[in-house]
Design a protein around this nucleic acid. Structure first.
Length: 723
DNA sequence: ATAGGGTTAG
């Protein structure tokens, strides 16, 4: 076809329908030497630029760089195209080039597109520069640009700046309100969002779908089911019947709002009635909502029925299992996800790492950490770093946790990260280090919270830092204004009791602003045991029985105490009462991970079905003979103050950690450190046995129980026999 | 101009 002049060219470019067609038209323009018809050229150029695939954008770039002096429309299209392809940095960099070369000045479209990209950049710097140009060139009154400026401010956390722009606007339209409400949602200011909504309806502006999507997301963190219902009602009042066709996003947002405040019945209702074709966001909301409500099975049912899953849905179910403490199943699901070919992102890795931390699965955890390093997620995500530090600490590698923590720059250290580090150090009995990390926290002006002090006080009590603990307890309320909670008192009672200040500890309990719970009495009892104070032990155990009548250990405890004071009849009655109520101690289990990364679980006295049962039995015999050689005798004092959570059988009892140890000794090389996780506190017998065995086998053994880590080495334990 | 999944303690 012969193209002779601009008019026929224009007609042709305007009928362009497919990418192939566009290539043909462009070829004809080039063949006929018609590039000088800039208006037509820019039309076909914008088709390529906005088509939305990397290849067509590449072609658009070619056309653009071959054009001698592009007009503003072409520059704007370039910026817009990069912005739509999430290439915000490139979009912003086009602006200086444009100012230097363009024959026309930037217009309002230029700034709207640019500010949109600035809003999505991590740093506010470029946006500020553009802001300056907007003022210089007199575009500030333009409502589109004002809205774009507000959007930029909100996305960069500049709430006051956004608020000022909004207040000083002579005209505020629907988009102004929507932008502000959605900005308040992003900045977690739900009350500001609500009052903006109120203001909006007072000024007669009718809200739309966008308004409610923003309002739902702003209020989803409030955990207020009454408010959720009110917002749902408002949607009806203003928009009438909303279903998937008229507002797919909005339905999803309402569902999410309900799931976040635990209203799963309402969420389910909206989900089944108004979303005939289930959207992935709504599915993810439902899955994590059920999981958060402790209904993992229901979450799983929904998950299983989805054919096309994405990373977010997988993450929802994995973290659901992890939060429910079903760590092994969480890891299984993660394996399945990998098999399906989907790539995890930061959030997925956080969920998996927390499962590893729960299991003490170091090998898997390290693999996940390497993955996050390879994907360059690490260091850019504060939560991910926290999860990694926590994983290392809970897997026994406290030095690795510290190393990683040290590499995080001050600006990226959050309260959560400090808490994970301090808590980890506390569990390893490294009280002095925990306190010095806290001093760092104070000097970097990261605000401690109640979790920080729980960790700190716990660290002090595990390391016997009595005076330090007392002064931190004061600091918490007097300087930081944090009211001590039950766990803080609990740490203090532990701390004082351990130091032999039993009367002080008892006074502490009496002067508490609330009734002491069983944990506190149990802690006092532990101190009574350590310091041999039978009288106070009786008081504590009586309180325990009163508070936890269904807890088997308390019956045993009381009956033992009564027995020592020769109150045989009473002791028998307590025992009988316990049997009649069918109370048992909870089953104990232990995990051990061997070096091939597999995790093995053992329950007390149960290994008969294990494939290595013969070897385990013989190793147990070997362990017992070595124990006898080392002069092991079961502790009789212990029985009086039986604070153990697990039922004892014989001296040769096979508590789960002993089975795990036998298995570990069988399946590891000499000198390899063995690490065992236990679901209850380790008992006195096992503790003594492990100390002796660490020497007898010349092995370092690490046991993580519910309270802390025990590092057994050369006949001694890092807990110095207090736990 | 729109939605969904995450970390610390007890």
């Amino acid at each position: 076809m012969q193209l002779r002049e601009g008019r026929s060219l224009l007609l042709l470019t305007e009928t362009c329908k497919s990418l192939r067609h566009a290539y043909q038209i462009h070829a004809q323009i080039v063949v006929n030497g018609l590039q000088r018809h800039l208006y037509s050229l820019s039309k076909i150029f914008s088709f390529f630029a906005l088509f939305g695939c990397p290849e067509s954008l590449g072609h658009a770039r070619l056309i653009f760089s071959g054009t001698k002096s592009p007009n503003v429309f072409m520059w704007n299209t370039m910026i817009r195209a990069h912005s739509l392809s999430e290439l915000h940095h490139e979009a912003v960099l086009l602006y200086p080039a444009m100012v230097a070369k363009a024959r026309d000045l930037p217009n309002n479209f230029t700034f709207t597109f640019l500010l949109n990209s600035c809003a999505r950049l991590a740093a506010p710097g470029p946006g500020f520069q553009i802001y300056g140009h907007v003022i210089k060139l007199g575009f500030e009154p333009d409502i589109f640009i004002r809205n774009a400026l507000m959007h930029f401010c909100c996305s960069s956390g500049l709430a006051d700046c956004a608020r000022k722009l909004f207040e000083e606007s002579s005209a505020r339209d629907l988009v102004s309100y929507n932008t502000m409400i959605s900005g308040m949602a992003q900045m977690c200011k739900p009350h500001a969002a609500l009052s903006l909504f109120q203001e909006m309806s007072d000024s007669g502006i009718w809200p739309d779908e966008f308004t409610f999507v923003a309002l739902c997301s702003a209020c989803s963190g409030l955990n207020d089911h009454g408010l959720a219902k009110q917002i749902h009602n408002l949607v009806y009042r203003y928009l009438g019947f909303v279903d998937c066709s008229s507002g797919a996003h909005l339905v999803g947002s309402v569902i999410d709002l309900y799931t976040k405040c635990g209203e799963m019945d309402m969420a389910r209702k909206v989900f089944s009635a108004f979303q005939p074709v289930k959207s992935l966001p709504a599915l993810s909301s439902m899955v994590s909502g059920y999981a958060r409500a402790g209904k993992v099975e229901l979450a799983r049912q929904i998950f299983d029925r989805v054919n096309k899953r994405d990373t977010i849905l997988w993450t929802a179910i994995i973290s659901g299992y992890s939060q429910a403490g079903r760590y092994d199943e969480a890891l299984e699901l993660y394996k399945e996800m990998e098999k399906s070919g989907l790539k995890p992102d930061q959030v997925t890795l956080v969920a998996v790492l927390s499962a590893c931390a729960g299991l003490g699965a170091l090998t898997v955890g390290e693999r996940i950490n390497n993955q996050s390093l390879r994907a360059r997620f690490f260091g850019r995500d504060a939560i991910l770093v926290t999860a990694v530090v926590d994983m290392y600490a809970k897997c026994g590698k406290i030095e690795s946790a510290l190393e990683i923590f040290r590499d995080v720059p001050d600006s990226q250290r959050t309260t959560h990260l400090f808490n994970a580090m301090i808590t980890g150090l506390a569990q390893h009995g490294l009280g002095e280090t925990a306190v010095s990390v806290f001093r760092e926290m104070e000097s970097t002006k990261v605000r401690p919270d109640e979790v920080t002090f729980t960790g700190l006080l716990c660290a002090c009590s595990h390391s016997g830092l009595v005076e330090e603990g007392r002064s931190l307890f004061k600091l918490m309320s007097e300087f930081y204004g944090i009211n001590p909670q039950m766990q803080h008192y609990c740490c203090m009672v532990d701390l004082l009791g351990r130091d032999g200040k039993l009367d002080d500890a008892h006074d502490f309990i009496r002067t508490m602003p609330f009734e002491a719970n069983s944990v506190i009495w149990r802690s006092l009892l532990g101190s009574c045991k350590l310091h041999g104070n039978v009288e106070m032990g009786k008081i504590a155990s009586a309180k325990l029985l009163e508070l936890e009548p269904d807890h088997g250990a308390r019956y045993v405890l009381l009956s033992n105490i009564l027995a020592t004071t020769k109150q045989w009849e009473e002791a028998g009655r307590v025992r009988k009462g316990m049997e009649q109520r069918g109370i048992q101690k909870p089953p104990g289990w232990s995990y051990i991970e061997i070096s091939n990364g597999t995790v093995h679980q053992f329950t007390a006295s149960n290994y008969r079905s294990h494939p290595q049962k013969e070897e385990i039995a013989s190793k147990l015999r070997d362990m017992n003979s070595r124990l006898r050689t080392a002069g092991y005798a079961p502790s009789t004092v212990d029985v009086v103050f039986d604070v153990d959570e697990e039922e004892k059988e014989t001296i040769v009892s096979h508590h789960s950690e002993k089975l795990a140890l036998a298995f570990g000794l069988l399946n590891s090389g000499p000198g390899e450190v063995l690490q065992i996780m236990k679901n209850l506190r380790i008992c006195g017998d096992c503790h003594l046995a492990f100390k002796l065995l660490s020497k007898a086998y010349a092995r370092e053994i690490i046991v993580r129980d519910t309270a802390r880590f025990h590092h057994f080495r050369n006949g001694l334990c890092s807990c110095k026999d207090f736990w």
